[in-house]
């Protein structure tokens, strides 16, 4: 087996050869499913997710679990003043090394669903679509850390593709620290974008920001870490989100340009709306 995260200080290199402030390779595509209202595919390193968005549309019959619903900032279900964002996540059994089956009602999955729904609801203009529902369906094909961040990023792209009005991109990434909680190392470097091994061995958090601003819309930290280290981690995370936003933006613009070239969009009409330059 390769070395573990404790070797970072030997040469300031992480287990996969990155420096502390580097993202993994991010690869994304939008409009991957022509039949859907909006769709995307996103890879952050080896974490691979697919997203399909339908809606806004009339709400279907409510299912018992209903996925993670967020009625646009806590609007009571049924009031219908805003569109409801419903997220469902399916984690494929083959996505992780141990090939564990994740049930739909799995606690972790439910939590991911509600976090993604709340994050997107903060940006989507749900008030424009009363009495309707936006369905975001996410499929996890491969897991190698930073899963929540990848899900949020994929959902953002798919929503853009679906043409749902939104304030700005919701871009997410993770941040960590190079030594464990127990080591209590004040001089530990913060880390950007954790892979699976780093998530297992080191403290970390997931952060998402809105567009180019420093507005944090999601902050999840499930590991123990000294407060003194948190600030550095958060700063690196927010900076990472901006890099991710750049990448997402490039993907969207590139797709727009190609669509214009291929004639999917009629020239002249809607060019301004597409805001492609």
């Amino acid at each position: 087996m390769p070395l573990d995260t404790s070797t970072y200080n030997l040469a300031l290199l992480r287990v996969d050869g990155r420096r502390w402030n580097e993202l993994r390779r991010v690869h994304a595509q939008i409009r991957t499913q022509a039949a859907a209202d909006g769709s995307s595919y996103l890879e952050m390193g080896h974490t691979k997710v697919m997203c399909v968005v339908t809606g806004p549309s009339e709400p279907g019959p409510r299912r018992g679990t209903g996925g993670g619903g967020a009625g646009g900032g806590g609007a009571a279900a049924g009031a219908g003043a805003k569109a409801e964002v419903v997220v469902s996540i399916v984690i494929a059994g083959f996505s992780s090394v141990d090939r564990k089956r994740h049930g739909r009602g799995d606690k972790r999955t439910l939590e991911l669903q509600s976090t993604v729904a709340n994050a997107l609801a903060a940006s989507l203009h749900t008030h424009l679509f009363p009495h309707s529902q936006v369905n975001i369906s996410l499929h996890v094909l491969s897991q190698d850390g930073s899963l929540l961040a990848a899900l949020i990023n994929a959902a953002t792209l798919a929503c853009v593709d679906a043409g749902i009005p939104m304030t700005d991109y919701v871009a997410a990434c993770t941040a960590g620290s190079t030594s464990t909680y127990a080591a209590n190392d004040e001089g530990a470097d913060p880390l950007l974008d954790l892979n699976h091994q780093e998530e297992q061995e080191l403290p970390g958090l997931t952060v998402a920001t809105l567009g180019e601003s420093d507005r944090v819309v999601v902050l999840v930290c499930e590991s123990r870490v000294q407060v003194s280290r948190l600030e550095g981690m958060l700063a690196v995370g927010v900076d990472g989100c901006k890099q991710v936003r750049e990448i997402l933006d490039r993907v969207v613009r590139e797709k727009g340009r190609r669509m214009v070239q291929e004639g999917t969009v009629e020239k002249g009409i809607g060019l301004n709306e597409m805001d492609v330059d």
């Binding site: 996969d16 050869g17 990155r18 390779r25 390193g45 080896h46 090394v97 190698d144």
Partner: peptide
């Protein structure tokens, strides 16, 4: 038997 896929980022600044 587990198949572990790892990424390696090759660089020239080591």
């Amino acid at each position: 038997v587990q198949k572990i896929v790892r990424e390696v980022y090759l660089r020239q600044d080591i």
